[in-house]
């Protein structure tokens, strides 16, 4: 299962490594990872290459992207998201903010930058690689999403209400499946994500390599995928709804040291 994902990564990592000045050391790093069999670190490595690669009409990299701790600061930045950003006057999670940086720093259009957000085992998406790289810079940092600004508090409140809100063709809420301890869908255990003890270890390991998909998945994907199972229409990527949901889950998990990107079922 891992093999097909890995051969794609091999190509991606080699392509990236080939042109760069650090080609030699990247290649060695890559060889070591293959030997250790860690798909997550491979995603981080490819993500690093994409983060630093000039792209778009402005031929700029994402290195000056401000994820909340200042332009270009990545250490611990993911653990402090979602948060309020004054420049756009709204709450953003990692993926929403990176999309913003693609549009502002690189000059890319919304249409082009969102063409392929969720990848698959054969071809992971740019957003997935980038998420792996950025989140990896927060290992060991306590999850501490923004909660002081009124918009951050409003996002939490909206997410909290949405969690229990019955909607869609099949009348589900998140709590229909994630509402009681010890319940399963088929053999999959369903975490009660509004309780800190369940949310902490799980939310602090997203984004993650999912063995059942043989590829890397992000939080926006996870929320999107659960809405699909709820038989609703599709939530817009980066919209307030998805950010509020993510804010609620992350606040519930706060205080947990970030241990991702993780590996999940």
């Amino acid at each position: 299962m891992l093999v097909s994902g890995r051969s794609v990564l091999l190509t991606a990592a080699l392509t990236l490594a080939a042109g760069s000045a650090a080609a030699q050391s990247q290649f060695e790093k890559y060889q070591k990872m293959v030997a250790e069999g860690s798909p997550v670190e491979l995603f981080e490595l490819v993500g690093e290459g994409l983060w630093k690669k000039p792209q778009g009409p402005k031929n700029a990299s994402l290195e000056q992207c401000d994820l909340g701790l200042g332009a270009g600061v990545l250490q611990g930045a993911y653990a402090r998201l979602p948060r309020y950003f004054r420049d756009v006057d709204r709450v953003m999670d990692l993926e929403t903010r990176m999309l913003h940086c693609m549009m502002t720093l690189q000059g890319r259009s919304l249409e082009e930058a969102t063409k392929r957000l969720f990848g698959n085992a054969d071809k992971p998406s740019e957003m997935e690689y980038l998420s792996a790289y950025v989140a990896g810079q927060s290992r060991g940092h306590a999850m501490a999403p923004g909660q002081s600004h009124p918009r951050e508090q409003a996002a939490y409140e909206l997410g909290r209400k949405l969690y229990f809100y019955r909607t869609g063709l099949w009348d589900f809420s998140c709590a229909s499946c994630h509402g009681e301890e010890g319940k399963r869908i088929r053999m999959s255990e369903l975490p009660v994500l509004y309780k800190p003890e369940a949310a902490r270890p799980l939310i602090a390991t997203w984004p993650a390599y999912r063995v059942s998909n043989s590829t890397f998945k992000t939080m926006q994907w996870r929320i999107n995928n659960c809405f699909r199972q709820m038989r609703t229409p599709e939530p817009v990527f980066g919209s307030e709804v998805v950010n509020a949901m993510n804010m609620f889950l992350t606040v519930t998990a706060q205080g947990e040291p970030y241990r991702g990107p993780g590996t999940k079922r």
């Binding site: 909206l158 909607t167 609703t232 229409p233 599709e234 817009v236 919209s239 307030e240 709804v241 998805v242």
Partner: peptide, 9 residues
């Protein structure tokens, strides 16, 4: 909010 942030698919 749902009406604003979801799209038919």
């Amino acid at each position: 909010v749902l009406k604003r942030d979801f799209r038919a698919k």
